[in-house]
Simulated scan of single mutants.
Amino acid sequence: MAQPDFIIIGAMKCGTSTLQTQLSVQPGIFMTTPKEPNFFSDDEVFAQGMDWYHSLFEPAAVDDLKGEASTHYTKLPTYPDTIARMADALESPKLIYMIRNPVDRAVSHFMHEWSEGRLGKDMERGFRDHPELTQYGCYGMQLATFVARFGLENICLTSLEQLKTSPDQELARITAFLGYGRIPAWQPAQPAQNVSRDRIRRLPLHDLLIDSRWARKMRHALIPKALRQRVWQARTFGARPDIPPGLRTQLENTYKTDREELAVFFPGHEALQLCYSFAIQ
C-alpha cells in the first residue's frame, strides 16, 4: 500500500502551501490532492480509514518521493490524537516543520480567522478568547512530542524567512533531507500561497452568493465596477493590523520562553536568528 515518505506537519500561516507547491513541481516528488488531508488529526477524516489515506498516494509513480502537507498536525491542544495515530500507521516518516516569526504568524492567523468570519477585528479580545492564536506559534512545544516519538533525526526545521532569503539553497537543503537524488530548482513563477492580506471575509452562503459562476455574472452585469471595488475592499483586511502594545509584550514573552525549548532541539539553527529578532535584541 502506498504511504508517504514525508509529511509537512506545519506550522499554520508559515508558508507551508508555498513549500508544498515548490516541492510538487520538482520531478520525482509527488504531493497529495487535497494538499491538506489532515488525516491523522481530524476525527471525521480519520474515520474514513487507512485505505482512503493510502489512496491519496496511489497516483504517484513507483520511484516518486511521496508527501502530504497538513498543518493540523501541529495544532496542540486542538488535535490531541495526531501523533499517536501517526505513530501507529507510519514507521519513520520524514517530517518537515516550517516556522516564521511567531508574532507575525499569530497576526496572520488572526487575519485568517477574521476572513473566515469567526472573529471580529478586536485583536485583544480575539487573543483572549482564542488561545490557539498564540499556542500554534509555540513551536518548541508543538515539536516536543514529535521529537519524542519519531526522533530528531527525522525532523527538518525550516522557516519562511529562510525560503525568502535563500530559496534555492533552502529548497536544496530540504530535498537533501528527504533523500531526493536530484538538484531542485526553485520556480519563481509560482505565486505565494494563502497570503492573509488578500483573503476575503466569508459571508453566510458565501460559496453560493459570492463564488458561484452565476453570482459573478450577476455582479458584473448589474453592479458598477467602482461599487464592486468598494465592497471588495470592505471585505478584505487590507494592511496588517497594529498589535496593541500590551498584547505584543505578552506574545513576545511567551515566544521567548518557547524559543528556549526549540533551541534545545536545534541549537544554532538559522531559524532561531531569523524568526526571533525580538528575542535577541
Rank of each mutant, 00 (worst) to 15 (best):
I7F: 06
I8S: 02
G10P: 08
G15L: 06
S17N: 03
T18K: 00
Q22E: 11
S24L: 02
S24Q: 10
Q26A: 02
I29H: 07
I29L: 11
E36S: 09
E36R: 03
F40W: 11
S41T: 06
D43E: 15
V45P: 04
F46D: 07
G49T: 09
W52V: 00
A60I: 01
A69F: 02
T71K: 07
T82K: 02
A84Q: 15
A87R: 13
A87E: 14
P93V: 05
R100Y: 11
V103D: 04
V107S: 00
F110G: 10
M111P: 00
W114M: 03
E116P: 02
M123T: 01
D129R: 07
P131K: 05
T134S: 13
Y136I: 11
G137K: 00
Y139I: 00
Q142M: 12
A144H: 08
F146W: 13
V147R: 06
L171A: 03
L178W: 04
G179L: 06
A185H: 13
A192C: 00
A192Q: 10
R197I: 07
L208M: 14
L208I: 12
I210E: 07
S212F: 01
W214H: 12
K217F: 03
M218W: 14
R219E: 14
P224A: 07
A226F: 14
L227H: 08
Q229E: 12
V231S: 13
R235W: 14
L247D: 03
L247A: 08
R248H: 07
N253T: 06
K256H: 00
E261R: 15
H269R: 01
L272N: 05
A279W: 05
